[in-house]
């Protein structure tokens, strides 16, 4: 129980600080810590494969893509700090989030989830997982492969931009 509380506290604190900071790079680096905390939760819960997938995909790949996006979309060397937005917007967001949090906490606490099945820790080896993925879930695996290919090709096409666009913007001068 203590590890869960530690992991939860660390993850929530880093996520909250990351979304409140002004410096985008600091936000991205703190979110890496938050994602690593989520991977630690998966390890604690016994889902080792998901934990390693989380480390590979989020801590390794998505964080790098986010950092690249931050660095590619800044106008000058010190344009990585974003001003805090209007206080009204922040207060409205806090009120909405607090209301959702209250509803969710109330629903979770008041629901009888039953006693935990003591000792009934489900175990799943990587071999079993692979057999499941290639057996009953083979169609879903193929569709996810196609989805990833199409999405990454689409991302390249969207981000690359066309040459005429760049040529016609050149006279404006590169800020």
């Amino acid at each position: 129980m203590i590890p869960l509380l530690l992991i939860a506290g660390l993850t929530l604190a880093t996520a909250a600080v990351a979304l409140a900071l002004r410096n985008l790079i600091h936000s991205a680096l703190l979110l890496i810590a938050s994602w690593a905390g989520i991977a630690a939760f998966y390890l604690w819960a016994g889902a080792e494969f998901v934990a390693f997938a989380q480390v590979l995909v989020y801590v390794g790949a998505v964080s790098m893509v986010v950092l690249f996006a931050v660095l590619l979309t800044r106008r000058s060397r010190d344009d990585i700090s974003v001003a805090i937005d209007s206080p009204a917007r922040g207060i409205a967001a806090l009120l909405t989030g607090g209301a959702v949090l209250g509803v969710l906490f109330g629903a979770v606490i008041s629901s009888p989830l039953g006693a935990p099945a003591a000792g009934a820790r489900p175990s799943l080896s990587v071999k079993e997982l692979g057999l499941q993925l290639m057996g009953p879930h083979a169609a879903a695996l193929l569709i996810v492969g196609v989805l990833l290919t199409v999405a990454l090709l689409g991302a390249v096409v969207i981000a690359a931009g066309d040459r005429t666009d760049a040529a016609e913007r050149k006279p404006e001068g590169n800020p």
Binding site: M1, L4, L5, A8, T11, L12, A15, A16, L19, A20, I38, F41, A45, D85, R89, G90, A92, A93, L94, T96, G97, G98, V100, L101, L104, F105, V108, I109, L113
Partner: peptide, 19 residues
């Protein structure tokens, strides 16, 4: 506790996305 943890994380993400 796990469900409370995930609801809190969801709400942090929601507040960040809105604010």
């Amino acid at each position: 506790l796990c469900l409370l943890f995930s609801s809190a994380l969801f709400c942090i993400g929601l507040i960040g996305a809105l604010a």
